[in-house]
Structure formats: structure tokens, C-alpha cells
Design a protein around this nucleic acid. Sequence first.
DNA 1: CTTTCATATGAATATCTGTTCATATATTAG
DNA 2: CTAATATATGAACAGATATTCATATGAAAG
Lengths: 117, 117
Amino acid sequence: MAEPEQCAYLCVHQEAVDQVLEDLPPDEHLYDLAELFKIFGDTTRIKILYALRENELCVCDIAQLLSITQTAVSHQLRVLKTNKLVRARKDGKNVFYALADDHVHKILALGMEHIEE
Amino acid sequence: MAEPEQCAYLCVHQEAVDQVLEDLPPDEHLYDLAELFKIFGDTTRIKILYALRENELCVCDIAQLLSITQTAVSHQLRVLKTNKLVRARKDGKNVFYALADDHVHKILALGMEHIEE
DNA sequence: CTTTCATATGAATATCTGTTCATATATTAG
DNA sequence: CTAATATATGAACAGATATTCATATGAAAG
């Protein structure tokens, strides 16, 4: 009701729009949510996450397993770690990576469910 | 065991790698999964999906609600529809969009859960 | 049929992002 | 210390993608 009809949207169903506006999470949350899914939205990162589903693996395990360069793996692990989807454990010259928490498992599983329908 | 050590990966933990290889979904599935998350990985699309959580809305409802142009909304709805995340219902000059199925709700909710932890 | 409104589409642009290459850091062995 | 191995990082390039602008389609009203 605070919105004058000064815009070009003449067909707006105001009641429906107003109701959505009430329940819509703050922009910042929606932005963060998109950022989260963006991390899952890359084939290399998905492969890495899937590889880490059961065991922790070191960087070159992942590189060999997925037939991608160590550098590419390192870059993507950094993204995954920054976004708290994996955690790192250092052991001598090796750094072992594992999924950060159960949310990651769940999101992967739910996504796969949707794919396979 | 079929893998000779001809590559540069000297530190590989072969048992762990072999085990992961057994359980790893086919490349095509992993690719599709990444594609799915890619759709969720955009602020505009996330906002649209969230707007459609409760009610169906027509294109210009969404445009006004989110303060983005009709064209941008249309382009993104096309992406969402192509990937079966929303469905469309035509009513006269209007086209009303709604979430395609419950998977979409679930994926949004799970993602939000992770964000808010 | 012509006009108006709602939506869709195509092309162009600007931004973002993933990989590669070269190199740096760090740890262990000799 | 020096050499070798494992990982990380920075810069540059190439490919992808979201928005904008102009315009097309399609439906209802007059």
C-alpha cells in the first residue's frame, strides 16, 4: 500500500505480492544461499565432494582419482574450505581433506535424488 | 591395481583411492548434479524460487516484488522452467509460475539450514 | 483490425570463474 | 645445508553467464 503505481507494472496482483514480501528472507540471506549453491554448481567441486563422501583423501589422491591437475584440485579445495564445505588435516607433507559436516552429505544426497527422478 | 605408476602422483594412497572409485557415481550423474546446483547458484533465481514458495505469481508480480526488469525475470524463468524447477500456467495475457515439485522446497530449506548454522 | 498490455526472445556487452603455467612455501630425507 | 616431494598461490587467459536493449509474439479490448 506504500507503493504508488508509478512503475510500469500494471498487472501486479498486489495481495499476493504483499504476502510474499512478508515472508521473504532478507536479501543478505538469499545472497548467501545462492553463494552456497554456487559452490556445489561446478563439476570439479562436485566430484571432489563425492570423492570425500566416505574417506578423507590427500590432494594428490584426489588429483589422480579424478584425473585433474594438482593445481586445479588445490584451487578448488581452497574454495571448498573457505566456504566450510571441507576441512583440512595436515600430516607431514600431506594435507588430508574431508567433508566438513553432515549438511554437505545431505545436500549432495537430496540433489542426487532430484536428478534420478 | 590396473594403474601403473606412470603418472606424477607418487604419494597416492591406493587403497583409499580404489575404494572411492568403486562407489563414485558415473561422470554423467555428477555433471548433471553440478548443473542442478548451478541453477540454484544465482541470486536472482534464488529470489524467484523463494518468491514462489507459497503462491504462484505472474511474471510482472515477480519483477515488481524483486525490483528487477521484466526481461531479466523472463530470462531466468526460462532457465528455471527448462530445468524443471518451476512450471507455468497460462491465464489470458498472464503466465503464472509455481515451484515444480517438493524437491525444490526441500533443497531450498536444506540450504537455508546450512546458511543459518 | 488496431491498439494495448503481458511475456518472450535474440544479440551484444560486461562480469565472473575455472584452468593453466610458473613459482612459492613447507616438510622430510640425506 | 641441499634435494626432493606435497601443496599452495598469483597472474593471465579462455569460456561461461546474467543483464540490458530492441524487438517479436500473443492475447484481450475497443
